Simulated assay, not measured.
Amino acid sequence: MHTQEAARFAAMMTKSADLKRRIAVELADAVIKVVDVCETSLRQGGKLLFCGNGGSAADSQHLATEMLIRLRSSVERPSIAALALTLDPAMLTACGNDYGYDRVFERPLRGIGQRGDVLFGITTSGRSPNIVRAMEAAREMGIVTVGLLGGAGEPALSRCDLALLVPDSETARIQECHIALGHAVLELLEDRLVARPLS
């Protein structure tokens, strides 16, 4: 039994590593473009917004916090404007109750989002209705849409200005790549903002 579990564990780690090696090559240009739009937004007074469900909600909070507070202990810099739309249970439950769960990200986005912001929609399937609606609203508002996606990516993929699509259908492995991609984007962005601080 332990031998079977050890083999299963090794297979999980190997698949995760193989996926990361693949996206390191295939998504490099896309990652740099995401860094570009984030830097442009922040230099023009915009902010980074994140949304997702379940584990992707946790990733949204994780990534926003690393901009607001600290990404790397070795880097001291000002707080960077970032917010997860998953933070407020009163807001989420009020919207779910009054407007429906499909609008839990769209509704607050319309109140706090501004032209020139960047919205990261995180969905491992690409099919989360509340992410799709938020991205549609963002596009109407002049907010840049970035998808952290998995599977075929649709219908969210069609609503993205830029997409980081993990080419797999296993939720756990996609999520592992999403957080790695998020960390890479934010670390490259932080490097730029340390080299040339925001005014």
Rank of each mutant, 00 (worst) to 15 (best):
F120T: 00
I131S: 01
D98I: 05
M141D: 10
P108F: 01
S128C: 03
V146F: 10
I112S: 12
I174G: 05
L119I: 04
R103S: 11
A184R: 01
E176D: 13
I143R: 03
V166I: 14
R110V: 09
N97E: 11
E176Q: 06
L164F: 08
M91V: 15
A156G: 04
C95L: 15
E170M: 13
G126A: 00
V144H: 09
L149R: 00
G147C: 08
G100E: 10
A90N: 13
A152W: 08
M91A: 15
G147F: 03
G100L: 07
E154Q: 15
I174V: 14
A163Q: 11
R139W: 13
R107Y: 14
E106V: 00
F105E: 09
C160F: 09
L119F: 10
V104Y: 07
G150N: 01
L162S: 08
G111Y: 14
G96V: 11
A156E: 04
R107Q: 13
I174K: 02
G153L: 00
L109D: 03
F105S: 07
Q114R: 15
N97I: 09
C160K: 04
T123R: 03
A180S: 14
N130K: 10
R139H: 12
V118M: 06
G100V: 10
A152I: 12
A180Q: 09
S128K: 00
L162P: 02
T171K: 09
A152E: 15
N97H: 09
G100H: 10
C160H: 06
L164V: 04
L162E: 12
G142F: 13
Q114C: 13
A94V: 09
D161Q: 14
T145N: 05
D98H: 07
V146D: 04
I122Q: 00
L119A: 07
R133Y: 13
M91Y: 06
Q175M: 11
Q175D: 08
A138P: 05
L164K: 01
R107D: 07
Q114H: 15
C160Q: 07
G126C: 01
M141R: 12
C177W: 01
L157A: 09
I122D: 02
R173I: 10
G121Q: 01
G121A: 11
V166K: 05
A172E: 14
L148K: 04
E136V: 14
S169L: 13
L119N: 03
L165E: 02
